[in-house]
Amino acid sequence: MKPIRIALTKGRLEKSTVELFEKLGYNCDEIHNKGRKLILSVGDGKFEVVLAKAADVITYVEHGVCDLGVVGKDTILENGTSFYELLDLGFGRCRFALACKKDFDFYHGYGAKTIATKYPNVTRRFFEGKNMDVRVIKIEGSVELAPLVGLADGIVDIVETGSTLKANNLEVKEYVTDISARLIANTASLKLRKNEIEELVKKMEEAIK
């Protein structure tokens, strides 16, 4: 039987997922000593892990070249469409928030507001839900800069501790949604390899309880 292929988001989520795998008793030596290898064997050949940037995890899973994926809810909300979201893994917790300069009354007045963000889809949906027309500007780097230099009235971004906001005289106006790492599955894989995937999901579920 072919190993189940899992796409992991590089970085913090990768570390927590490896910890989870090890807790389940799967050998992760190849991930620890990956060198330049791109496809890594885990659990003595039972699984295959590939490491990818967050948005690419979704792409690989959607196209079915990876059966499962571990990716943040932020990326799912921004990019995701057709796959199954099986499990909230509980780690990588943070929040999407609308923030702006302290003492700025964001909802005051009728002028259309400008929002800077790395997550234009999340932002657009959030304000659509409020029946508000906003101008969305996509920023690639530190979004916090935008309201400070006068590019935007506010930002929609991921907030963990809030210390960057505080240091720049910004504050959270409203939380948009909670975020954590999710286990996602390709639609066809879940049908074709139901038993193997369900077994893994059950084990993970118990381990993170």
């Binding site: 959607e62 079915g64 070249v65 057709s82 639609t187 066809a188 894989s189």
Partner: peptide, 26 residues
């Protein structure tokens, strides 16, 4: 699959989807 839902306002009885190995979608 009792959770199978697709274009739900469109279907009004049985629904089915077919999958084959190697293709990531129905």
């Amino acid at each position: 699959d009792l959770g199978l839902l697709q274009r739900n306002d469109y279907y009004s009885g049985i629904i089915f989807s077919g999958y084959i190995q190697g293709y990531g979608d129905a």
